[in-house]
Design a protein around this nucleic acid. Structure first.
Lengths: 213, 213, 213, 213
DNA sequence: CATGAATGAGAATTCATTCAT
DNA sequence: AATGAATGAATTCTCATTCAT
């Protein structure tokens, strides 16, 4: 990578970092380009030098974190011989992912506009979906492996189960992170403990035997 | 309730009904006060006679639907002697709730602004949280009943489990409803089937024995 | 027309008048909505209450003046039994039209974007073209009448000739009005005299005999 | 001219050529400095090394093409012994001029800002006006020659007539070129045919006898 | 000289909200 | 009570121009 490219990458990174902070605090929708300019200490016009539109910024953040997530999940799946340990590592990766990328709630995959046929939607969005699909496929394989090892219930269709699992876990993280939502108020649980329990609960839903604490 | 109050209630209801339709179709954010005025056939200014702000409308809708949900859950819990049947009815109620109230995704409890300390936040928001708490308490009782009947795993702390359950299920509905998100693309599943499987999966996570199909 | 409509019409008129002044001074392109707001003494947002877009303002000005022109030309053609007198009146109307509506240079008919198929272009633009067509047809008839009376050269195809005549005359007005263009500098001619000569010149091009001064 | 000057001239030429292509395609207003930089394959900043502003580029193009026009007209006038043939050549040159230089419509002489008193207006603009004046003078002489030869009507004041002729012809070209304006719609005439007829019409306005086809 | 990088100053448009009647 | 009318404050995005290297 040339020095120029590196510098460009650096600036894009600074902008994305600033945007990410703001998105986390106020949500994508409520964050304006002015906000990002102020936070990143570039002028508003400069933002448009490095990104074509606000949407591109949002997508870039999402994509990069999804790629990161994909790598973490892959690492978890490949590193642990023991299926249960791998499971824990996978959950951990996902939980961290949402923790670090609140953006993922807003703009995620689940928010794609209806009327667009997948062929001609933004390159950016397509990339994101592709990474998501790949990650899902990886998890489905992981489930099959568990089934082969005799720990995952054989009757579960892997692809659908991955989706359900993913949805459930993300819902839990969402709740855990809800600023001053239920969690902090009624219960006094650490986010981490809460989510560990959640992961365990979903494990029970998927595996054969009772988990021994 | 005086005649005047009744009339006021009527107008508020008309407005809320219109707003709900629009929110369902376009989301809270994308719906403008102009839209609501047009749909409800009041003038925009009149909206402000019955509601202090757009936010109040959003909250009012949320509150009313949460009250409805509460009633449905209560009915389910109380109506079925069989715990499993009651469980199904509860899931059904929640799924329907999110189906009818996409608003619940946007503005839900999980979206409360950070900087507000719970003491002095909007009356509206407090009401919503209160209903949510009551509903949760009801579900926790339902879990305890299951434990007492020997079907729900005894070691699960009811309050926390309710939260996790709720979060997981809402995550699933969210995914199922994501317009042309993962669901429609990779799998070709009916929303209903998908969610029934999800509910079953969570049941497995909560109950003792393996569920027999 | 109801009182409300009348008021609306009044406001639209005020805005259009202001816009017209600015367009005349700076051209359509260089005139901003802020300018129009300031000049018309409405807020910028109010402009959008009465017009959907800047384009609509431009078109409205153009349309109204073209309708006016059409009426004047019709009056001229119908009022004078003598063809030559009618011709003078027609020229006068056109000259005045461009004098009062410098907008007509910028946005005129001659500026229509290429790629638009006439069926689905703005209602506004279609109206303008329609009035233009009608006016042209009227002038073509006037030419035929002259031919029938033996004063206009018989071999000229009316429709094309109208177009050429119109183009030539508008070019002349354009030059006469060019702020400090050639006119004022080299010659010291009154705009009116200059244009009267122009109209006479075009008359010579169209009619049979030499005009006697 | 020193080597350095020659090089500078070369670069200016490249830039102007690129700009001209763009102006022809999109108009002066819609062409950005970025566009010109891309098309000319210089950096945007370099453009400002060779030209002080966008306006200077526009003016330079205009000037160069007006000089070209002047030469063509001069050639036409000097080359043809027969006045009518020379007239045709002159018209042809002017028509081509506008065909190749749509810029001439936008920025032309007729668009000079009001508030500037001729003394202290841009050097660039003054140059343009000067060339225009010279060209006009040449045409006036041509008219006088025609009068001397007995073909042009003696009573026409040459200077004024040149202006009128020029204005009329440019108006016709303008109309002929209006993308899908009147021309293409109602009539189906070739641009060339249309303009030839226009030139003939103006000839009739200027000369004594009826033109024999 | 040439240029990559940065930006100030707009531009059109939108929308929740107020207020006089 | 009901509303027509008006608007301040944003919002996204654009573009000619400057300047350090």
């Amino acid at each position: 990578m040339s020095k120029k490219q590196a510098l460009t990458e650096f600036h894009r990174g600074s902008i994305l970092a600033a945007a990410e902070r703001l998105f986390a605090a106020k949500g994508t929708e409520k964050t304006t380009m002015d906000d990002i300019a102020r936070e990143s200490e570039y002028s508003k016009a400069t933002l448009y030098v490095y990104f074509q539109s606000k949407e591109e910024i949002v997508n870039a953040i999402l994509l990069s974190s999804m790629v990161l997530l994909q790598k973490k999940i892959q690492a978890a799946v490949e590193h642990y011989g023991n299926w249960f340990q791998a499971y824990d590592a996978v959950c951990d990766a996902i939980i961290r992912f949402y923790g670090d990328n609140p953006t993922a709630y807003d703009t995620t995959i689940w928010e794609i506009p209806v009327n667009v046929d997948p062929e001609q939607m933004d390159k950016g969005m397509r990339d994101i979906l592709q990474v998501g699909d790949a990650t899902n496929a990886m998890l489905a394989d992981f489930l099959r492996r568990g089934a082969a090892e005799g720990v995952v219930r054989i009757e579960l269709p892997p692809n659908e189960t991955v989706l359900l699992f993913w949805a459930a876990l993300s819902g839990m993280v969402r709740m855990a992170d809800s600023k001053n939502g239920y969690m902090g108020r009624s219960l006094s649980l650490e986010r981490d403990v809460f989510l560990r329990h959640g992961a365990r609960m979903l494990l029970d839903a998927i595996t054969k035997g009772r988990t021994v604490e």
